[in-house]
Amino acid sequence: MIAFELAVQDAHGLHVATRLRVDRVELCSALALGGVTPSFGLLDAAVSTPGAPPMHVLVRPRPGDFGYAPDELAIIVRDVRHAVAAGAAGVVVGGVRDGQVDTDLVERVIDAAGGASVTFHRAFDLLADPEKAIETLLGLGVRRILTAGGPTTVGDSLPGLAHLVAVAGGRLEVMAGGGVRADLIEPLVRLGVPAVHASAKHTVPDAAALTLGTAAQGESGRETTDEHEVERIHAALRAAGARP
C-alpha cells in the first residue's frame, strides 16, 4: 500500500483529512508561500480532532531559502519541542548549508523531537548531491524525505524520482511531492514510491475588497483543501492497486 499524506493549512482541511481517512497530515500554514509553521491553535485543534490522522508538523519559521541563522535555528528547535509536546506524531524540517544538508540543524531537530518521526522536506531538491544526502540523512536518523525528484515538479522529474527510490532501497521513505495530482498517481505507483504527498487545494472566491499584504496583489480568494481532488487521488490510488 502507498501512503497518502495531505498538506493541510486550516480547519476545513482537517475535516477533509479526517473524513476521507488520509494516512497522515502535514500540518502547516500559508501553503501559497510554500508552507510555514502552523499556529498553536491549529495544532491543538488538529491533535484533538477525534479520528484525525497522525499529524506531522511543518516547522519552517519563514518563507524563502533554507539557510537559517542561529536565532532562526533556535526558533525551529523550540517549535519542534512544542509540536511534539502537543501530540504531533512527527515534524517536517529542512536546512541547506553550502549546497549540503545542514547537519547541525537536523541533529538538533532529531534531539528535540525525542523519538518522533522527522521528515526532511523539499529543501532536499536543492542539494548538490542527492545520493550523498540520502546517506547523510539516514545516518542522522531521518525517516523520510519529501522530494519531486528534481527542483521543479513531480511531473517533470519522474526519472529522477525513480533513481532516488532505487538509491534509498527502502531504508528510508521517499515520498513523492510537488505538484502531485490524481492523473500522476498511476506513473508514481509504477516507479515504486512508498508514499505520495499532495496539497489538493483550490481557491475559494473572496468578496472582500480589502487588500492585505504584498503577496495578495491580484488575488481574489484564499486557498483551501479541495475535497473532490482528495477523493480523486484516493480513487487513482485504488485504481492503480495501491489501496484496498
Score class of each variant (00 low, 15 high):
117 S>P: 00
128 A>G: 03
106 V>G: 13
101 V>T: 09
79 D>L: 05
110 I>S: 02
111 D>G: 09
128 A>M: 02
114 G>Y: 03
120 F>I: 01
125 D>T: 04
82 H>V: 15
91 V>T: 06
79 D>A: 10
121 H>K: 10
105 L>T: 12
97 R>P: 00
84 V>Y: 07
96 V>L: 11
102 D>E: 06
103 T>H: 11
117 S>M: 11
111 D>L: 09
81 R>A: 15
70 P>Y: 04
75 I>A: 14
100 Q>E: 15
88 A>G: 12
90 G>Y: 08
99 G>E: 04
117 S>H: 11
100 Q>I: 03
119 T>Q: 02
82 H>I: 15
122 R>I: 08
77 V>I: 14
117 S>R: 12
84 V>I: 15
99 G>C: 03
84 V>G: 06
109 V>H: 05
129 D>K: 00
104 D>C: 07
126 L>A: 13
118 V>F: 05
94 G>M: 02
105 L>V: 10
117 S>W: 00
81 R>W: 03
103 T>Q: 15
75 I>E: 14
87 G>M: 10
121 H>E: 10
113 A>H: 02
125 D>C: 08
115 G>Y: 07
131 E>K: 02
131 E>I: 05
81 R>D: 13
106 V>I: 14
73 L>T: 13
119 T>F: 00
99 G>N: 04
97 R>T: 06
96 V>C: 06
75 I>V: 15
99 G>W: 01
126 L>Y: 06
94 G>S: 14
112 A>H: 09
113 A>P: 08
71 D>K: 03
110 I>N: 01
105 L>P: 10
123 A>K: 01
78 R>F: 09
70 P>I: 10
113 A>F: 02
130 P>E: 02
129 D>P: 00
81 R>S: 14
83 A>P: 08
75 I>D: 13
99 G>V: 02
115 G>D: 09
127 L>Q: 07
131 E>M: 00
122 R>Q: 12
108 R>W: 01
83 A>F: 06
117 S>L: 14
83 A>S: 15
84 V>L: 10
119 T>G: 00
79 D>Q: 14
123 A>N: 04
95 G>L: 05
101 V>D: 10
97 R>W: 13
97 R>Y: 09
113 A>C: 07
94 G>D: 09
97 R>N: 05
130 P>G: 01
84 V>E: 07
114 G>V: 08
112 A>D: 12
74 A>D: 15
